[in-house]
């Protein structure tokens, strides 16, 4: 049976990918570069990654499919599956289904300023979009990356974030808890919005982080003048099938695997304030 690239004819069947290289990002987070012929994913999309005999989890794409180079997934080891995946060594096999879900609307953002706001591990799903935007830098006005994380030790892609600063990107990082060597911003990421230079009337925002962070960030971006329809969030719910059939990733009338994970703020705003939705 000839499978479509996205596995539509056998949606539950993982294909085998291999770890090309593995890189430690923080004390509990690793990035895996994969050899996964024909399987990639656009920035904003996710793949289902399977560790043999342990289980499968959704992990967002952290690379830019338009660039040469491997598919990259950044994994925080917090459960049985993510620990097993993060521990895989170069050459090891893993299962992969995907890519699934919606993408960051980079084409829509072209011609205006791009404001990217990340909270914690939320930088991982945005990394591919940032890399794409930098690869086609001329298509955007100002680009701002506002990144909030728990502590200086939790900063993801540290050297790459420094490199972004040198590539005509306004990068601002803030931490919840500083250490003695930190001389940067302290506090929630929303505090960076007012200081970022962007022309709100033609700006597009991509936001990813904990749901409560996204809710307040989107609200602050709207207050700063960005139209709600131009603010995009990447939402998260439990997920098993990734193909709209297990029912677990419901967010109101949306299935996050199918209608998200990247969704427009104006469409989800009323639901963000409902507790335990």
């Amino acid at each position: 049976m000839a499978a479509r690239a996205d596995g539509a004819s056998a949606p539950f069947l993982p294909r085998i990918a291999r770890v090309r290289s593995r890189r430690r990002e923080t004390h509990d987070t690793w990035s895996l570069a994969l050899d996964a012929a024909g399987m990639a994913g656009e920035p904003g999309q996710f793949n289902m990654l399977y560790a043999f005999g342990i289980g499968e989890i959704p992990v967002s794409v952290s690379s830019d499919a338009a660039a040469t180079g491997p598919l990259v997934h950044t994994i925080r080891a917090v459960g049985a599956v993510s620990e097993a995946l993060a521990a895989l060594r170069p050459g090891a096999a893993l299962g992969l289904r995907g890519p699934f879900g919606t993408t960051w609307p980079l084409a829509e953002a072209a011609g205006g300023d791009l404001v990217i706001v990340a909270g914690g591990l939320g930088l991982a799903p945005l990394r591919g979009a940032i890399r794409r935007a930098l690869a086609e830098r001329g298509r955007y006005g100002r680009i701002a990356v506002l990144y909030g994380t728990r502590s200086p030790a939790d900063i993801l892609y540290r050297s790459e974030v420094e490199r972004w600063r040198r590539l005509d990107v306004e990068v601002a990082v803030t931490v919840d808890h500083a250490d003695q060597r930190w001389h940067g911003n302290v506090g929630v990421v929303t505090k960076l919005i007012g200081r970022a230079g962007f022309a709100a009337a033609h700006a597009t925002a991509f936001v990813c982080g904990p749901e409560i962070m996204m809710r307040f960030t989107a609200s602050a971006l709207e207050a700063a003048g960005i139209a709600p329809a131009r603010i995009h969030l990447s939402l998260e719910r439990n997920m098993k099938c990734a193909v709209g059939q297990c029912g677990r990733c419901q967010f109101g009338g949306s299935l996050i695997c199918r209608d998200g994970a990247v969704m427009r703020y104006d469409r989800v705003r009323p639901l963000l304030t409902i507790r335990e939705l």
């Binding site: 539950f12 043999f52 005999g53 342990i54 499968e56 059939q245 297990c246 029912g247």
Partner: peptide, 26 residues
């Protein structure tokens, strides 16, 4: 009601694994 979960299991000798889909409930 169609919601499901999956269970991944592995044999005691670690050689074979399988995935079973089961009805689940919200």
């Amino acid at each position: 009601c169609f919601c499901t979960s999956v269970e991944d299991t592995i044999s005691l000798d670690g050689r074979t694994a399988e995935r079973v889909q089961r009805w689940d409930s919200c």
